[in-house]
C-alpha cells in the first residue's frame, strides 16, 4: 500500500519535473524572440531620458505622451489609412489575377508560365525601382495609390500563385467534372467548388501578401510622396539630423506591429494548414 503511494508520488514528481523542464525550454527559446518586442513596448511608455539609460530602468511611471504625439503631431491616422489602402488593394488585385492563374497552371501544367512568374519574384525588388520610377513619373503617377498597389503586386501576385498552385493540384479533377455535369461552367466550378475547398490556402497567401505590403519600406521611399506616404516610411519622421525621438519611434513601431501580430495570432491555424497542405499528395 505505502509502496504504491511512494511510486505514484515519485511518478507525479517526475511528471512535474518534466513539465517544468518543458516550460523552461519554451521560455528560453521564446525570450530572445519576444525581448525586442517587450523592449519596444516598454520604451514607448518611457520618457526620452529613461529610454537610453544604462543600466535600464525597469520600474517607471508610464507615459502616453508618445502615443498622443504620434497621432496628434505626426498624422499617423493618415499613414495607417494609406498603408491599409495599399496593402488591401494590392492583396485584392493579386488574388483577382493570381487565383485564376494558379488554377490554370495547376490544371493545364503551364510550368514555363509559373517559372516566369517566379523569376520576377526572385529578382531583387531594387532592380525594378528605377525603371518603375521612370515609368510612373512619365505617367504622372508617382505619389498615387495606383503606382504603389501595382508595385506591391509584384511580390504579392507571384506569392499567391506559388502558394495556390499546389492547392489546386491537390483537388481531384473529378470534383470539377461532377460540378460541370450538374450544369456548372468551368468558371462556375472554379468559384463554387474549388475556391471554398482551398479556403485555408487563400487566407494564408493573402495574409502573407498583406503583411509583405504592410511592412514594405523600399518601394514606399521612392514611389510615395506627401499624399501616399506609408507607415514604414513615416516611422522615420522620428529620426532627424542630430536628434532621434526614440519614444515616438517606439510608439509608432508598436502601432505598426500590432495589427500584424493580431492577424497572425487569429490566423495562425490557417497559416500552418495553408503552408503544409499540398505537401503530401495521394
Amino acid at each position: 500500500m505505502s509502496d504504491t503511494m511512494v511510486t505514484s508520488n515519485r511518478s507525479r514528481r517526475k511528471k512535474q519535473l518534466r513539465n517544468l523542464g518543458y516550460w523552461v525550454v519554451v521560455a528560453l527559446i521564446i525570450l530572445p524572440f519576444l525581448f525586442p518586442l517587450i523592449w519596444m513596448l516598454l520604451s514607448s511608455l518611457k520618457v526620452q531620458a529613461d529610454i537610453t539609460r544604462v543600466p535600464p530602468v525597469w520600474s517607471f511611471t508610464p507615459t502616453t505622451q508618445h502615443y498622443r504625439a504620434v497621432f496628434a503631431e505626426h498624422d499617423f491616422a493618415h499613414y495607417i489609412f494609406n498603408s491599409g489602402v495599399i496593402a488591401l488593394g494590392s492583396t485584392a488585385f493579386s488574388l483577382l489575377l493570381g487565383l485564376p492563374a494558379a488554377y490554370s497552371i495547376a490544371r493545364f501544367q503551364q510550368t514555363k508560365f509559373s517559372l516566369g512568374i517566379l523569376v520576377a519574384r526572385i529578382a531583387p525588388g531594387i532592380t525594378f525601382l528605377i525603371p518603375w520610377f521612370m515609368l510612373f513619373s512619365r505617367l504622372r503617377m508617382v505619389d498615387t495609390y495606383t503606382s504603389m498597389i501595382l508595385a506591391h503586386m509584384l511580390v504579392g501576385l507571384p506569392f499567391i500563385v506559388w502558394v495556390m498552385t499546389p492547392f489546386f493540384e491537390g483537388i481531384p479533377v473529378e470534383l470539377e467534372q461532377a460540378a460541370m455535369i450538374d450544369g456548372a461552367s468551368q468558371a462556375g466550378a472554379f468559384f463554387r467548388v474549388l475556391l471554398p475547398l482551398t479556403g485555408p490556402g487563400v487566407i494564408t497567401s493573402s495574409i502573407l501578401a498583406f503583411v509583405f505590403s504592410w511592412n514594405n519600406f523600399m518601394f514606399g521611399v521612392v514611389l510615395t510622396g506627401a499624399r501616399t506616404k506609408t507607415l514604414p516610411v513615416a516611422v522615420f519622421n522620428f529620426m532627424a539630423y542630430s536628434e532621434i525621438n526614440w519614444g515616438g519611434l517606439m510608439a509608432a513601431a508598436v502601432i505598426i506591429t500590432a495589427p500584424v501580430i493580431v492577424i497572425a495570432l487569429i490566423a495562425q491555424k490557417y497559416i500552418i494548414q495553408g503552408l503544409t497542405a499540398g505537401a503530401v499528395k495521394e
Binding site: I130, F133, M134, V221, A226, V233, N237, M239
Partner: peptide, 25 residues
Amino acid sequence: LQVESLFEDQLSQKLLVEFASGTST
C-alpha cells in the same frame, strides 16, 4: 509649394533614384 520631408538616408536614396532616372520633378 509642395514640400516633402524625409530622414537623411532616405533623402539620399530618393534623390539618387529620382535624379538617376532623369525624370525627376
